[in-house]
Simulated assay, not measured.
Amino acid sequence: MNPERLNRKEFILYIAGELFMEKGFQATSTREIAEKSQIKQPNLYHHFKTKEDIYVAVLERLSLQVKDGLETIINQPHRDLEECLTEILTYLRNKHPANFTMMSHDMKFEISNEHHAQLYVLWRSAYLDPLETLFSRYLPQPHRFTPAELARHFYSVIAPFIQKDNRFNQEVSADNIIHLFVHGIL
């Protein structure tokens, strides 16, 4: 994405997205967003009523990108489950801008109930639904775990490996992480 080609509101979201994904909701101020967007803080409120509104708009954009990426991966023909999950992990490692754990914490604890509900709908649509579809396609039914349980567990397993500043990204291959997830230790 070329930030110079964005309109003012999109540029604010681009800058805010970088800050929120790097530092988290709490540690990012509207003053910092305004300064890095090269506008005065009151002008920021011309586009967004609150910091939460900015955060929600950033996550809406991110969710659409993630959903498109995951659906593209799971809809490729002639792939097995392990290949799809490995590609999903690789995609999230390379494309997901946030510390997954920090983002989940922010969505759960730092955001108002009104926005929390909205963010959950985004999370479900972009992150959980594609994985549930994938697990439904490959696992025999009935299965010990539901596709929803597997999708949530998958994210809890891979979360440490998606962090941008994490040494695990280089030390553990996506293939090994997914092999362990799919086959267990035996």
Score class of each variant (00 low, 15 high):
S136M: 09
N169S: 07
I158Y: 01
R144G: 02
F168R: 12
Q141W: 06
L122N: 13
F154G: 00
I177C: 04
D129V: 08
L139K: 09
L139H: 05
E149H: 10
P140V: 14
L134Q: 02
W123A: 14
L131V: 04
F161H: 10
R137Q: 07
T133F: 02
A148D: 04
I162R: 02
V172H: 01
S125M: 12
L134S: 01
I177K: 06
P142D: 09
R144K: 11
N169F: 05
E132L: 07
P147A: 09
L119E: 10
S125Y: 12
W123G: 08
V157I: 13
P140K: 14
W123D: 12
E132G: 03
T146W: 07
A159R: 00
R167E: 05
Q141E: 10
A148S: 08
F145P: 01
F161P: 00
V121A: 15
D129Y: 14
L119Y: 09
Q141S: 14
D165H: 12
T133S: 11
Q118M: 13
L119I: 15
P130G: 07
V172L: 09
V157H: 05
R167T: 06
A126Y: 08
L122S: 14
I178S: 02
E171T: 06
Y127S: 03
A174Y: 00
N176M: 08
S125H: 13
T133M: 10
F168K: 12
L134K: 00
A148G: 01
A151F: 06
V121L: 13
S173N: 03
R152Q: 11
L139R: 09
N176Q: 06
Q163E: 11
W123H: 15
K164P: 00
A174M: 00
H143I: 04
F168I: 05
T146C: 03
A174T: 07
R167K: 13
F135G: 02
L128Y: 01
R137K: 10
V121T: 15
P142R: 12
E132H: 06
A159S: 13
F145V: 07
I162S: 00
E171V: 05
R137M: 06
R152E: 12
L131H: 06
E171P: 00
I177R: 06
E171Q: 12
W123Y: 15
L128N: 01
L150V: 03
H143T: 02
R152N: 13
N166V: 04
P160Q: 08
R152M: 10
A148N: 04
Y120W: 13
L134N: 02
Q170D: 13
L139D: 01
I158C: 04
Y127Q: 07
N176G: 01
E132Q: 14
F145L: 14
F161D: 01
T146M: 04
A174V: 03
H143Y: 15
L119V: 12
E149T: 12
E149L: 11
S125Q: 15
S173I: 04
A159M: 02
I158P: 00
S125F: 10
D129W: 11
V121Y: 14
F161M: 12
